[in-house]
Design a protein around this nucleic acid. Structure first.
Length: 417
RNA sequence: GUGGGUGUAGUCAAGUGGUUAAGACAACGGGUUGUGGCUCCGUCACGCGUGGGUUCGAAUCCCAUCACCCACCCCA
């Protein structure tokens, strides 16, 4: 019990850490080019933030939050990244800066769910948010950032799906029409769809059951119910995406599971990593700030799952460059040479080299073997002979070529380089 | 929460009631006192996820339990 991590959590080991470093650096880099600045918010927030932000009828709030009481306050590990950021910009009055405010983050989130491929209880995501703009340029910019990010990583098996879920007004009209359409046949639907009827009838449109698919054909489509403003926005979004060269497909099935969304909704999906194929999902949330008691600030953004991203890259066979192996291993023989070796390793490290020394007391042959296993580039030998003669041998491991030079730090360094 | 699958050393694995639980890779040591990748030798599960039960005898059969994986739901 004490020797296993809690269900749904994973240790990040050195054999994987370099992959995380890689995608994190690439993400920070593209955000920099798109003008997004990093924000870091606390891992936990007041529970109420998520209840009101994400929505108290959502699965996340109803059954997936890690919540506890402390000092008579209810606190919750963040299940998503947007609400905390919205809270932070309101609290810190960032809306007084030149608008729009463009932020990105790199966080872990927590949801109590049953783990499966591409789903963990502690998972990690990148996110970006743009605040203060109603303009569809912002939506297109956010989407283009994600699109470029995938392309720069060499990912091809991923498709952008976009939709508009309308404003509260047109969405309500559509829901009413949808319910009228579905009601007569409600008994014929699967059990999950019957549940969805009240909570989120839109979900019934992309049920996996063939029987439900049948019953759903010809149902009213959201896009036909958009009010003039929403319709104009959605057309503008598409026009902007096209202008930027972003390929997309309109998918009326895109439904966001968090209550705060309106208008633009999008997902980057793949079928290469199992059932959880949404690698990146987001949209517009113009009413979120107000609904948590903040100022009226429109926003648009996305969350991008890092675990899923890595799964996609792995499935596509995309190689991530591993960290460089050591430049040199200092092998030694005998106690006098040991002291000399310790001094040398430290000096080499201070001079910026990745230098290694055997800490297990192996014999010379063992030290060479160790150097080989670590894929060290050079091995230098220090023994009585070297100390007496003031010369050292450096062996280039790849070619087995060995040179003898003066025992002098500058000569050693220039020989290695 | 519901369903399916899997659990033998660090990893991959043989073994399906009967002597001391194959093998491979890895790791570590060594092949006569100073040089790796090849090769050779050695070490490495009183133990088969855990706990019960059946049996003269169980990794192998039964029950329970735990863990991991996958899928539903939902989402990143």
């Amino acid at each position: 019990m004490l020797t296993i991590a809690p269900k749904g959590t994973k240790d990040m080991l050195p054999k994987d850490a370099y992959k995380w470093h890689f995608i994190e650096n690439r993400f920070a880099d593209i955000c920099q080019r798109y003008g997004f600045k990093e924000i870091r918010t606390p891992v936990f927030e007041h529970t109420e933030l998520f209840v009101r932000g994400v929505g108290d009828t959502t699965d996340i709030v109803q059954k997936e939050m890690y919540t506890w009481e402390q000092a008579k306050r209810s606190l919750t590990l963040r299940p998503e990244g947007t609400s905390p950021v919205v809270r932070a910009i309101g609290e810190n009055k960032i809306y007084a800066d030149p608008q729009p405010t463009k932020l990105y983050y790199n966080i872990s989130c927590f949801r109590y769910e049953k783990p499966q491929s591409g789903r963990l209880r502690q998972f990690h995501q990148f996110g970006v948010e743009t605040f203060g703009s109603h303009n569809m340029i912002s939506d297109a910019e956010v989407i283009a950032l994600a699109d470029d990010f995938f392309k720069e990583l060499g990912i091809k098996d991923i498709e952008l799906h976009i939709n508009s879920i309308g404003c509260p007004e047109c969405r309500e009209k559509h829901r009413a029409a949808l319910r009228d359409f579905l009601q007569p046949n409600l008994e014929k639907f699967c059990e999950t769809c019957k549940d969805r009827f009240d909570r989120n009838p839109l979900r019934m449109l992309d049920c996996k059951s063939p029987a439900c698919q049948e019953l759903v054909t010809g149902a009213p489509v959201m896009l036909d119910y958009l009010c003039d403003d929403c319709k104009r926005d959605f057309e503008m979004l598409q026009s902007n995406l096209t202008a930027m060269g972003v390929e997309y497909v309109v998918d009326p099935g895109i439904v966001r599971g968090l209550d705060y969304y309106n208008g633009t909704a999008f997902e980057f999906v793949t079928n290469t990593i199992g059932a959880q194929g949404t690698v990146c999902g987001g949209g517009r949330y113009d009413n979120l700030s107000e609904s948590i008691g903040g100022p009226a600030i429109p926003g648009v953004g996305f969350g991008l799952g890092k675990e899923r991203l890595l799964l996609v890259m792995e499935a596509a066979g995309i190689e991530i460059p591993n960290e460089e192996s050591a430049d040199i291993l200092v092998a030694f023989m005998g106690d006098v040479a040991k002291n000399e070796a310790l001094k040398l390793v430290r000096e080499l490290r201070r001079r910026g080299l990745n230098a290694e020394i055997d800490a297990l007391g192996r014999n010379l042959k063992g030290q060479f073997k160790y150097a080989d296993r670590l894929n060290v580039k050079n091995t230098i030998v220090i023994g009585e002979n070297e100390l007496n003669e003031g010369k050292v041998a450096i062996k280039k491991m790849a070619s087995s070529e060995q040179v003898t030079i003066n025992y002098n730090i500058d000569e050693i360094i220039s020989e290695i380089k």
